[in-house]
Design a protein around this nucleic acid. Structure first.
Length: 430
DNA sequence: TCTGGGGTCCTAGGACCC
DNA sequence: TCTGGGGTCCTAGGACCC
């Protein structure tokens, strides 16, 4: 007999805020928020902040008054801390099962297939307790027969504390499922974003339940095969399995908005060179090469009063490489072609595509480097990576990246690197 | 003054080939 | 008086996710 699939979604509650709270107990029970890069938007909110009606993703300057009035503690993104805490949470989850898909920095899907169904909820509670004990992070667990329904279960668990953080919909009768789906807005369904929500609402499809019973032909036509899968999943028919193994990236990008706008070509060059370094580092860390490099620059689209310009250049390399020096040369050459003086630039970035394993690369017949040259380049990069891993990113870098880097992003409210820098470890007073 | 960053997948349409 | 059809590959653009 073939067993029905069952999934659990483990999702950290207000993850970035929770990370800050682990190391600063004074933050418990007071309103806390964490901002995006460049201290631009609100990307994580404690429950107190959510209760104030501050929406996810809004620019922080739009809630300045609220911040002052309610004494909200505001933090810049401390990505080093969050990544390390994420690793700890995932390690805890791996103790439960090898059948795990790390879906994002704060979420993982687990397969419960094989467990007895009366054990699911207890298992969920055990996961919750273990993660809390090991890491100090609180998680919610949603259990269901499809990934999309685990998202629904998880939302219910988060919204209603009476469920104790664990909701199991895997054995719920259809009638009960429909009740929950009827209370969930269609925009809250996994796979329905802003645009589709508008389209669906215009069709009178307002809740997750409406979508579940929508006309499949219409959905397929207007929302592609992804929409179709979404509906099937709501009906309890699994379309997405567990992706246990991380696959290597098909595209790698590095881009940043500048802390303040940049007008000179020299500064743009520094920024682009440093983004290339970061992207190439990621490329090498998955043992790949790329043969397409895209470089782009743009002005601040929100500044209606300023002249706007944006451009990008697609560069196809003769042969794939992961060498920062080669990639930087191409990127700066490309930048020279699209740069126009007289604008205040807000953002620049690079994308690497055409990614392939470095064991399989096809060298160009008239390679710019003889094989020995290529090998020397590889071992140079290897050395750079090892030094930077040991002494911190950017310890060793190309002069092209600049020294002062005045364009760097703002992070004026950063918490300490509690878990990854000796000099910033928390101190316990006895 | 101040509006993030890094990914994925799907489709339509053009180029090209036979 | 007359201008094919079908397959494949690639790319740009648009949707989504966290």
């Amino acid at each position: 007999m073939r067993q029905e699939k069952v999934f659990a979604l483990v999702d950290c509650n207000n993850f970035y805020v929770s990370c800050e709270r682990v190391f600063d107990p004074a933050l418990a029970a007071i309103p806390v928020m964490v901002l995006s890069n460049n201290d631009g938007c609100v990307v994580a909110r404690s429950n107190e902040v959510k209760a104030l009606g501050i929406r996810m993703g809004i620019p922080v300057f739009q809630c300045d008054t609220m911040i002052k009035r309610h004494n909200i503690r505001v933090f810049s993104s401390n990505y080093t801390l969050y990544a390390d805490m994420s690793r700890r949470v995932m390690e805890a989850l791996k103790q439960f099962t090898p059948d795990i898909e790390i879906y994002s920095i704060d979420e993982a899907f687990l397969s419960l297939t094989g467990l007895r169904c009366e054990e699911y909820a207890a298992y969920g509670r055990e996961i919750r307790q273990t993660v809390m004990k090991w890491t100090g992070i609180s998680v919610s667990v949603g259990i269901a027969r499809t990934k999309t329904l685990t998202k629904v279960a998880n939302e219910i668990a988060k919204k209603h504390s009476r469920y104790g953080g664990v909701v199991d919909l895997s054995k719920s009768p259809e009638r009960e499922l429909d009740f929950y789906l009827g209370r969930l807005g269609v925009e809250d369904v996994w796979g329905v974003g802003h645009q589709y929500a508008k389209l669906l609402r215009a069709q009178g499809i307002k809740t997750a339940r409406d979508l579940k019973y929508a006309d499949m032909k219409w959905v397929r036509k207007r929302m592609t095969v992804m929409g179709e899968r979404c509906v099937l999943e709501l009906r309890g028919i699994p379309c997405f399995g567990l992706d246990r193994y991380p696959v290597s990236k098909k595209g790698i990008r590095s881009s940043r908005s500048f802390g303040k706008s940049v007008a000179t070509r020299e500064e743009l060059e520094e920024a682009v060179a440093s983004y290339v370094s970061r992207a190439a580092e990621k490329l090498r860390s998955q043992n790949s090469c790329a043969n397409i490099l895209i470089v782009y620059i743009k002005t601040n689209k929100f500044r209606r009063d300023e002249p706007q310009y944006a451009n990008s250049l697609h560069i196809r390399l003769k042969e794939p490489t992961a060498n920062t020096i080669d990639l930087t040369r191409h990127a700066l050459h490309g930048l020279g072609k699209i740069y126009k003086p007289g604008y205040r630039y807000k953002k620049a970035g690079v994308l690497l595509e055409g990614i392939q394993p470095d064991s399989l690369i096809q060298l160009h017949l008239f390679s710019s480097l003889d094989y020995g040259g290529r090998e020397r380049g590889e071992s140079l990069m290897d050395t750079v990576d090892r030094i930077n891993r040991k002494w911190g990113r950017g310890s060793l870098r190309l002069a092209a990246e600049g020294i002062r880097q005045r364009w760097k992003m703002r992070r004026s409210m950063l918490s300490p690197a509690y878990t990854s820098k000796w000099e910033e470890l928390p101190v316990v007073r006895v």
